[in-house]
Design a protein around this nucleic acid. Structure first.
Lengths: 253, 253
DNA sequence: ATGTTCGCTTGATGCAGGTCAAGCGACGGT
DNA sequence: ACCGTCGCTTGACCTGCATCAAGCGAACAT
């Protein structure tokens, strides 16, 4: 996020082994030699710009994509012509795993800001994983992690109110940016209020009102797309649902 | 579902190659020889009963589980002490994929009715997939499919109203039962109204009222847990969101 | 600089569905 | 056969958030 300068070609050609994201990406836990082999199949594309598509819903599945810098949103069409934002993807995150099953993309991926993206042809990757057990394991973990993440979203959409959703969203961004060595409390939103609302199952107006409220309550500072979190702990307790006396659907069997 | 008789030991010891579910399960597309090898690592447990756990949230991850007969629900604890039902699993469906990442289960799996379950130790499976490319591919597809399914649920929880959610739920059950050779229009619900509501992000009362309404509208017949779908096509058009003039969050960039 | 667009904010209003409350019938235990 | 429990239904009410409406300011083109 907040990546405003054009990325130089120099930067792009850096290999996996030098990539600052390797600890978040596929090479995690591989030997130097295996990283070289993986490196051999990764394509590094020229910088993409806001609005560019990595792929569109319906496209044949060929490659996975890893965000190197910038950010990408994925979204699926809903039957009525609207769309559901499925996620915002930051550096080190992998896009396209959901397309393996049907060998076609069920969602589209659109670049939110000038971004550098690695492309990994899946068939080549699959060959490689068959001969590198730790890479295979890493793939399973990545796919599994994606499921776990979706599960978290199900809980959020199924049980949390608007306040809890937005607080969770902000904290998720914060945590992920921090992992990438960026500020956890001061960042730019590359997505619009509308996209945030869509992602969280809320109306734009609700998102806007909540930003205002959070700011009035001293939890954060908002200036257009520039966000500063002032009281992370308070936000965390909001997510916990300590928000009020919110009744939970209890479960009995 | 509606599996009331106790499963005989005879049935349980049948191997993968004779399993009627093989086309839905891991063996899909394997050679006879490879199925044998897979078969060698699969454990078949004695029948489990309503309320039994396959695993609990926090347990160390060891195995994947496949439902052979019966049904299982998975659910995750939410911070406030409630829980979120994540899914209902029918014969042929695999449980536990979300635990690979952290090597621990983040949700619990509880048997809803007398069920037969296959257990597949994951470490053994992983060894096997490294030597059987088509099995590896099958695993990737399974994991990917799970992501796709979660994605559908995100859309449902994020954009659909109560009516659309329940209709989608009924049709999903119907479709899955049909794939397993059971009736698509006449079945028992092994889960409670409460669990359905929890899964769909609705209150029990709303689920109940909708069942009544759907019945009054001639879409289905409801008698306790016995369901008969009378007008599948009408239900499908409900899901489409033709429900009214439901406004969609449009997306612009 | 000036107009146009578009994303965002803010206020007013309405309603889908959650919450509360009460009753009923099925089922399991003794 | 009886009773208690529990899941389900139904009605009355209430509220959180969507919807509708209006206005504002930043970014951009001319």
């Amino acid at each position: 996020m907040s990546q405003r300068k054009v990325i130089s070609l120099e930067t792009i050609r850096v290999a996996c082994r030098n990539c600052s994201l390797s600890s978040l990406c596929l090479p995690m836990g591989l030997t130097a030699e295996d990283v070289e082999r993986l490196d051999g199949i990764v394509k590094r594309t020229r910088p993409l710009h806001r609005g560019d598509f990595l792929f569109r819903d319906g496209d044949r599945f060929r490659s996975l994509y890893v965000v190197k810098t910038g950010s990408v949103k994925t979204f699926a069409p809903s039957p009525e012509g609207g769309e559901q934002v499925l996620g915002f993807h930051l550096p080190g995150e992998i896009i396209g795993l959901d397309a393996i099953d049907k060998d076609a993309h069920a969602c589209s991926a659109k670049v939110l800001e000038t971004s550098a993206i690695c492309e990994i042809p899946f068939s080549r990757l699959e060959e490689l994983t068959a001969t590198i057990p730790s890479l295979q394991h890493q793939m399973y973990r990545l796919l599994s992690k994606e499921i776990g993440h979706d599960t978290d979203m199900l809980l959020l959409l199924g049980k949390k109110n608007a306040e809890e959703r937005l607080a969770a969203f902000l904290l998720s961004l914060s945590r992920r940016l921090q992992k990438r060595g960026l500020s956890a409390t001061d960042f730019y939103l590359s997505m619009s209020r509308h996209e945030i609302g869509n992602y969280l199952g809320l109306a734009v107006e609700t998102v806007s009102r909540l930003f205002t409220r959070f700011q009035d309550d001293g939890l954060m500072r908002v200036d257009r797309k520039h966000i500063q979190l002032l009281d992370v702990h308070a936000l965390q307790s909001l997510v916990g649902g300590a928000g009020q006396n919110r009744r939970q659907h209890q479960q009995q069997t």
